Computed example of a mutant assay.
Amino acid sequence: MTGEQLVLLRGKLGLTQRQFAEIIGMSGSAVAMVEANHRKMSATMRAKIAANIPINDELLSFFDSTEKLNRINPV
């Protein structure tokens, strides 16, 4: 997951960086660093998101569409 996708996920959930970080059990600064593309998402963060954020069909479709757009127009 890219930093941009993390921002979109957090926004879709209506959470601040701090709230999101608390839910996944990581620091707010770690979330901010990934969102700003200053750090790549670690396997640990990815696992914590998967374990603590319910991903439904709507969110999966949303990320599928952003992935397709990124392939067409790389950032």
Rank of each mutant, 00 (worst) to 15 (best):
M1Q: 13
M1R: 12
M1F: 08
T2C: 04
G3H: 08
G3V: 06
Q5C: 04
Q5F: 03
L6W: 02
L6I: 02
L6Q: 00
L6P: 00
L6K: 07
V7Q: 15
L8N: 10
L9M: 06
L9D: 02
L9N: 03
R10M: 02
R10E: 04
G11Q: 02
G11D: 03
L13C: 03
L13V: 08
L13A: 07
L15R: 02
L15C: 01
L15P: 02
T16R: 11
T16I: 06
T16E: 03
T16P: 11
R18Y: 10
R18N: 09
Q19W: 12
Q19I: 12
F20R: 02
F20I: 09
A21H: 00
A21V: 00
A21Y: 08
A21E: 00
A21I: 00
E22M: 01
E22T: 03
I23P: 08
I23L: 12
I24T: 06
I24N: 03
I24G: 04
G25E: 05
M26H: 04
M26K: 03
M26N: 05
S27D: 04
S27G: 03
G28I: 09
S29I: 10
S29D: 09
S29T: 10
S29N: 13
A30N: 06
V31A: 00
V31D: 02
A32C: 14
A32L: 15
A32K: 15
A32Y: 14
A32W: 11
A32E: 13
M33K: 14
V34M: 05
E35T: 05
A36H: 07
N37A: 06
N37Y: 05
N37P: 07
N37H: 11
N37D: 08
H38E: 01
R39H: 04
K40A: 02
M41K: 14
M41L: 10
M41G: 08
S42W: 05
S42C: 06
A43F: 10
A43C: 10
T44Y: 13
T44R: 15
M45K: 06
M45V: 12
M45Y: 04
R46C: 12
R46S: 09
A47T: 06
K48F: 06
I49L: 02
A50Q: 08
A50L: 14
A51P: 01
A51D: 01
A51K: 01
A51S: 06
N52W: 05
N52D: 04
N52L: 07
I53S: 07
P54N: 07
I55T: 00
I55G: 01
I55P: 01
N56H: 03
N56V: 06
D57Y: 10
D57H: 11
D57Q: 09
D57S: 09
D57G: 15
E58D: 08
E58K: 02
E58R: 00
L59N: 02
L59Y: 06
L60K: 05
S61R: 13
S61I: 07
F62A: 12
F62Q: 15
F62L: 15
F62I: 14
F63W: 14
F63H: 10
F63A: 05
F63G: 11
F63M: 10
D64M: 10
D64H: 15
S65I: 12
T66R: 09
T66G: 00
T66P: 08
L69H: 12
L69F: 14
N70T: 12
N70R: 11
N70C: 08
N70I: 06
R71A: 15
I72Y: 04
N73T: 15
N73K: 14
N73M: 14
N73P: 13
N73V: 13
N73L: 12
P74T: 04
V75R: 15
V75K: 14
